[in-house]
Nucleic acid binder design. Structure first.
Lengths: 228, 228
DNA sequence: GCATGTGAATGGATTCACAGCT
DNA sequence: AGCTGTGAATCCATTCACATGC
């Protein structure tokens, strides 16, 4: 299939965050198409479903080798399986959530975080009143002092920070020390990075302010439609 | 101060989302600096606090006119007030949250969503069991059928979608019809856009998958550090 | 004929580097 | 001397357009 692409496993080019984000989107779409019984899809049809350009989709997919058939398109199930493997969710990764407040609790029970490659193993909190309880779906709240132990014991690979802004840096550093190397941060702070730990931040406040900025300009008659 | 910049209010150039996101970050930093009693800051010092380039900060700030003093830097309080006005959060905007599940409830009580320019007026849900209740901090859950009315009555400008993926498009369309023109979407779907409604999406699943992708490649020895 | 895969062209955003002000 | 404001240069991502293969 990829006769011309006999690349060794390590010479793959660097893939940008923007591209991987789109791969997730494609995967979701392919899962849907498969459930509808569709067998193949062209980059052009895929592009129509989002606001994307078909060339971009082909480029994104071509990063990993040649997967389409000229004149036909892509095999839905095959491409889906391939993306699952490329994204590394063909096995389950354990997750802990640090901070068992409203947000942490909600995230623990969030469907997208349980199943299909991820599993929330525990919540962690310093508050002794919260320790020993559990989320609605039964995920236990453990003491902060147990964090290191849980990470090792349960082989936790990803942590979610859902504590207040002032505690986030300490938590991040402790997670790094405990051996976690991927963190999703919800605290509204600029964290000082450790080289071993990949960080993604979701800043709710920034998103709201960005909408406010748009509204303000719309009032003033400045046009700026579009998404994300 | 801006003698050379006598632009009329409407000739302002288009400002990218990337820039506005950074403006929010600067604002947060300036608020902190002000609370520490610092009077002025240079673009260089500001840049050191994030992982940014000082030229970028100057460019970002220069969008709105000349605010710094050569040889000195920027006046902290003055620049802060200016950003607050530029971001349109010098007045309070009302917000509703559609979907009073775990996530919606958590967001309703989220500190960043209440105060400093925003105010959550209500939660909305179809489930009759939820209607009439309230979040921990007292934000009421209203019926879905009331949405249109609440939006008009309370002059709601921003809506947050915290419903399941399959309901999100209907909610979005209803919000548009009700007159909301800014939406923050948490449902994992690609929404079909309306021209009058600005959309920002926060897709938690995509963020996790992106971390998984990083972990998978780190296993294979591909280097890709960095944030966001 | 039709759709992929991809080099070349375009379009944006970031960074450099320096003129100009305090 | 020090720092802003900004054209020019660079870097990265997206889009075009077409050769290639089913």
């Amino acid at each position: 299939m990829s006769e011309s692409h006999n690349r060794l496993s390590s010479d793959r080019e660097v893939i940008s965050e923007l591209t991987t984000g789109r791969l997730s989107v494609y995967l979701r779409c392919l899962t849907y198409l498969e459930s509808m019984g569709q067998k193949t899809i062209s980059s052009h049809d895929l592009a129509k479903r989002f606001h994307l350009n078909s060339a971009q989709i082909r480029k994104d997919l071509a990063c990993f080798g040649e997967f389409g058939t000229r004149g036909v398109g892509y095999n839905v199930s095959q491409l889906k399986e391939h993306l699952i493997r490329e994204l590394g969710i063909d096995r389950t990764r354990n997750v802990i959530i640090v901070g068992a407040g409203n947000l942490g609790m909600a995230l623990a029970d969030y469907h997208g975080f349980n199943g299909n490659g991820f599993q929330v193993a525990a919540l962690i909190d310093i508050d002794p009143n919260k320790v020993g309880r559990a989320s609605r779906s039964g995920i236990p709240v453990l003491a902060y002092s147990e964090m290191r132990h849980v990470v090792r014991e349960r082989q936790v690979e990803i942590a979610i920070i859902a504590v207040t802004a002032d505690a986030a840096q300490d938590v991040y550093d402790s997670l790094a020390a405990a051996g976690v190397n991927a963190v999703l941060n919800f605290a509204p702070v600029q964290l000082r990075l450790q080289s071993t730990v990949k960080l993604k931040s979701v800043d709710l406040r920034i998103n709201l302010e960005s909408l406010s900025f748009y509204l303000k300009n719309a009032e003033d008659g400045v046009a700026t439609p579009g998404d994300e």
